[in-house]
Design a binder for these strands. Structure first.
Lengths: 138, 138
DNA sequence: CAGTATCCAGCTGGATACTG
DNA sequence: CAGTATCCAGCTGGATACTG
C-alpha cells in the first residue's frame, strides 16, 4: 500500500514538474518580480521615485519614512540589478548619489495598475470575507 | 546642527506620513494582496486551482509539488480568509475536504495577467540588466 | 553623504510525531 | 484523510558603530 502511494506521489510530482518545465523560467521570473514589488520597501521606493522623480539617497530615505539605511541600500541595489532604477554617482565630496526610475521601472509600475484597480474594486469584498472568516472561527 | 537635521527629518517623516494618510488603507491592502500572491505557495496554489478546478487537500499538495502539510494548510487558510478560496468539508470518514477558487480568486488571477505579460515582454531586458550589473560588479 | 560591517532578536517554514 | 502540535535551523532585517 505504501508502495502504491509513493509510486502515485512520485508520478504526480513528476507530472507537476513536467507540466511546468516549459515555462519554469518565466514563472520564476514572474514570482521574483512580484515578490520584489510585494516587498514593502521596493514598493515604497518605486512609489517615491514615481512621484518625486530623480532623488538623492538620503532624501529618498526621508520620503519613504522609517526605512533603515541597510534596507534602503539593499532595496536600491536590487532594483538597480534588475534594471528598474539607475544610480548616478557624482564625483564630489561629500558624495552625491542620485537614483531614478528607468523606463523599465516606470513600465513595471504601470503593469501593476491592474492589481491596484482590482484591490480597489474588491476592497469591500475582501474586508467582508475576512470579517466572515473571523466570525466563523469563533 | 543636529537639532536642525532632526527637525528636518521629523518634518520630512511627518510629510511622508501625511501624504500617504489618505490612501494608507488601500496601500496596505494592495501590499498584502501582492505580497500574498508573491508568496511562492499562494501563487502555485492559485495556479493549481485555476488549471485543475475543485480539488481535495492531498491532491492539491501532489500537484503543487513539494509543499509541506503545514504550508499547504496555512496557505489555504489564508486564501480562504481573504475569500479567494472556498473550503467544503464532507462529513464522511475518512474526511474529505475540497478546495475551489471563488469568483474573487479567479478575478485576482486575471488581475495579475498584466504583470505576467509585463514579465514575459521584458524578460530579456531584465536578464540583460542583471548580466550588466554582475559584470559591473567585477 | 552614502554607504559598509557586525551583532543579534524574531519570524519563517521544514521535519517529525501525533489524532479525530 | 486532513489536519494540529512541537521543535528547531536558517534567513531577515533592525540597531549600532564606523568610514572614504
Amino acid at each position: 500500500m505504501s508502495v502504491v502511494i509513493s509510486a502515485f506521489d512520485e508520478a504526480a510530482s513528476r507530472e507537476a514538474k513536467e507540466r511546468r518545465a516549459e515555462d519554469v523560467e518565466l514563472e520564476v521570473l514572474v514570482r521574483e518580480i512580484i515578490g520584489r514589488v510585494a516587498d514593502k520597501w521596493t514598493m515604497l521606493t518605486l512609489e517615491a521615485l514615481e512621484e518625486h522623480g530623480r532623488m538623492r539617497f538620503t532624501r529618498l530615505g526621508e520620503i519613504i519614512g522609517d526605512i533603515s539605511q541597510k534596507m534602503l541600500t539593499k532595496t536600491l541595489r536590487q532594483m538597480e540589478a534588475d534594471g528598474l532604477v539607475s544610480r548616478t554617482v557624482f564625483p564630489v565630496v561629500p558624495p552625491r548619489v542620485e537614483y531614478e526610475l528607468t523606463p523599465l521601472g516606470r513600465s513595471l509600475g504601470a503593469a501593476f495598475c491592474g492589481v491596484w484597480i482590482w484591490a480597489e474594486q474588491h476592497r469591500e469584498t475582501i474586508r467582508q470575507a475576512r470579517a466572515d472568516f473571523s466570525a466563523r472561527a469563533d
